[in-house]
Amino acid sequence: MVNPRHRLAMNVRYLGALLRRFRTTVLMAVLLFGCMPLVYRWRHAPLDGSRVSLGKALRHVYFLLYGQPSLDVDDSLLMLLDMVIPPVGIAVLVDGVVRFAYLFFARHRQDKEWFEVIAETMKGHVVVCGAGRVGYRVVTQLRALGKDVVVVEKREEAAFVSVLRDEQVPLLIDDIRSPQCLPRTNVNKAAAIVCATDDDLANLNIALDARRMNPNIRVVIRLFDDDLVAKVRDTFKAEALSSSSLAAPAMALAALDPRIIHSFRIGTHLMVVSVFEARDGLPGMTISEVRDRFGALTLSMRRQGSRDEWLHPSGETRIQVGDALTLQAEYKDYRQLRAYTMELEAPVYSQRLDSAS
């Protein structure tokens, strides 16, 4: 759900961006309805010698837009204005007012001009290219962190296009490699761009164009070719991630030990995250002792019988029987800790099903 304050701030910024974009229309409206009635009041002299009221002068200017003057003028300047105001007003003012109202009230997510105005209101936002599974999860995580996000997707029928629109995420349907696409995302003021399409070449093209338009932008590229990852990181100075390299450790370790809930690499070190239930060995130790002895960081802790998760417990906290600890450690240290708790071998899947039933 969108925070009401955040929604109000977005609407105010959006209105400001519209006023900047339609400043010619605003100036024309001020000139037409603010200054022209004063001119008619000054120069128009009825037969009885009394000046025309400001309200009648304003009404005359208004109806001139429709070619229906309400005053009979014989002054040369006013006659010239009677001829100039209708075509100029229709060409500039009416067209601008209609487009302004359309963009402000309609706000169609598939409209490129609407998207461009929304992007103009943002600064330090993140541009996500691709509305597939990866792109959608990136958007969800960024929004949970409070970041402004805009999304670009080439295909209207992409998996999460309708979902993103329902969640009121600014979404542009366009070919990301077209010359006008990235400028519409206000990439010059963006903090980062995430290239998450399913085409390596397209992701690289997007990254190069974004870096050319904004040399300080942080670039994150999703690549399927593992050979390109290291080259892009070294030569392009961008964060390149391979889906297969990210998934491989998790899949391999899940096959060996289903108790491992997450895994990742830091350089050459394979790190794992797992939940330990304090039964043997751990009760009586402190959080600091577990870290110093096994190199395991305690990410969270939950006391037996409690549903509250205690993030980053202090080092002096003493572990009790039945405590559930979420620990992060290098894989070899994790194995040593499992051995210390007398449960080195991973549980057999069928046995876990039997115990659960």
Score class of each variant (00 low, 15 high):
V88E: 04
G146N: 06
V151G: 00
L93K: 08
L103V: 10
V138C: 03
M122C: 07
R137K: 09
K147A: 09
G89E: 00
G55R: 15
Q168A: 14
G49L: 11
L164S: 00
P87Y: 02
K154M: 05
V169W: 01
R99M: 05
D72A: 15
G132R: 00
G96R: 01
V127L: 08
I176E: 00
R109N: 05
R165A: 02
G96E: 00
M79E: 12
S76F: 13
Q168D: 14
R133G: 13
L145M: 14
I85W: 06
L77M: 14
V150F: 12
I173G: 00
A106W: 15
D166L: 11
P86E: 03
Y102K: 07
L93P: 08
D174P: 02
R109E: 08
R133A: 12
Y102G: 09
D72R: 06
G146H: 05
S76N: 15
L58D: 09
F105C: 14
V169P: 01
I176T: 06
W114L: 04
V98R: 09
C129E: 05
E157K: 08
F115A: 03
L142M: 12
V151H: 03
V151M: 09
P170R: 03
L47W: 11
V61G: 01
F100E: 10
D48K: 15
Y62P: 09
H60C: 15
V150H: 01
S53Y: 04
G89P: 02
F100Q: 03
A158E: 01
H108W: 10
A45G: 08
E153V: 09
G124S: 07
D82H: 12
L80I: 08
S162Q: 08
L80T: 14
T121N: 03
L172F: 06
F115E: 01
I90F: 12
V88N: 02
R99Y: 10
V139I: 07
